[in-house]
């Protein structure tokens, strides 16, 4: 427990950096020297009231921040993890949180507990709706795709296996518009679809070899077609395409045919490749190897904001808030900046 608070951000300085679509709102300062590894926004329920909170994670500490007012945040909880280092925060909706590469679990009330959920050769993991967690472990013939469902108090309620494909799964994404569908990408350029209710593997679709080792950031089903946003950490710059960061693909799940709809490349004069990113609704944000954050509007089809490093500190994390239209941007030193988009 801590009484640390943030200072309201210096708004005019931000306008200079982002003439356009981003406005700095607040900053969460990390007093330790620990490296920042993840940040997320979530609804936190306490005494029957829900508050939009921010979860920050450094190498061995997860912190919960609640808003004091529209500009300031207060750190209300810290959890220390002594048995392992934190790699990612995964949030399960609603209420229950599973943290730390989904190794540990907290009930979210005053009697926190940490439970080992999964260990071993974890390849991919994603928090799903209805308090479910999907994980893939192992490779090829010993690959296991598992769904864990949790009760209100955080206890494990159900475990179910999904049929594994004959390729190693890299990433998962829920499908907006088709509630029980789960999508995955594989190491050899396939997109696979499961039925979460039955565990069936419905389809394996090979996509163009130019989408090698794609990371899937989101999928939605619309009028019989699947629209999928992927990023390509390994994509190379070319004269014709520039530096591609995100691709929007359309797939017909019935025929397994696919096509590219939109290519999000870096604006001229910007250098770098995709390092990590996040997509929410129709906006996609990426941290580039140059330390800059770039944002694309997938409906408009172009880059709408560039956020260069602040105070000579490169960006290392970017997430869209799930509670409002804010962008959470993290630096390696653990400081988190909150922008209104």
């Amino acid at each position: 427990h801590s009484t640390e608070q943030t200072e309201p951000a210096d708004l005019p300085a931000c306008d200079r950096l982002n003439p356009g679509n981003l406005q700095l709102v607040s900053e969460l300062k990390n007093p330790s020297s620990s490296c920042s590894v993840d940040v997320s926004a979530m609804w936190w329920e306490r005494a029957g009231a829900k508050e939009p909170c921010i979860v920050t994670a450094c190498e061995d500490v997860v912190s919960l921040w609640k808003p004091l007012n529209s500009l300031q945040w207060e750190k209300v909880h810290t959890w220390h993890f002594t048995e392992c280092l934190i790699a990612r925060c995964l949030l399960l909706a609603p209420r229950i949180c599973v943290w730390c590469r989904a190794l540990l679990c907290s009930s979210g009330d005053d009697s926190e507990k940490q439970v080992l959920l999964k260990s071993g050769d974890i390849k991919a993991m994603l928090g799903l709706t209805k308090r479910r967690l999907v994980s893939s472990t192992g490779t090829l013939c010993n690959q296991q795709i598992q769904i864990m469902t949790f009760a209100d108090d955080g206890s494990s309620k159900d475990e179910q296996l999904l049929m594994p494909p004959d390729e190693t799964v890299l990433t998962f994404a829920e499908v907006r518009g088709t509630q029980e569908a789960l999508l995955g990408t594989t190491t050899v350029n396939s997109i696979v679809i499961w039925n979460l209710k039955t565990g069936q593997l419905l389809k394996k679709m090979h996509i163009d070899d130019s989408y090698q080792a794609s990371v899937c950031h989101g999928a939605c089903s619309e009028k019989g077609l699947l629209f999928v946003v992927v990023s390509q950490p390994c994509a190379k710059e070319s004269q014709a395409l520039g530096s591609p960061v995100f691709h929007l693909l359309v797939i017909n799940p019935k025929t397994a045919r696919s096509a590219g709809v939109l290519l999000c490349s870096l604006p001229q004069g910007q250098a770098g490749r995709f390092l990590e990113g996040d997509v929410k609704d129709h906006v996609a944000a990426a941290v580039l190897t140059s330390g800059t954050i770039a944002i694309w509007d997938l409906l408009l089809g172009h880059c709408t904001a560039i956020l260069p490093p602040v105070s000579e500190q490169s960006w290392s994390l970017v997430k869209w808030s799930s509670t409002d239209s804010h962008l959470l941007a993290g630096q390696k030193d653990g400081n988190i900046f909150i922008y209104r988009y």
Binding site: E180, A181, N195, Q200, L202, L225, V250, P253, K254, A259
Partner: peptide, 23 residues
């Protein structure tokens, strides 16, 4: 791209694939 290149589209693709796929 044209949706014609993607072949016949089914609005009930999820149900249809679920009935065709092995259990």
């Amino acid at each position: 791209c044209s949706t014609a290149d993607l072949g016949p589209i089914s609005l009930n693709w999820f149900e249809e694939l679920s009935s065709e796929a092995p259990p």
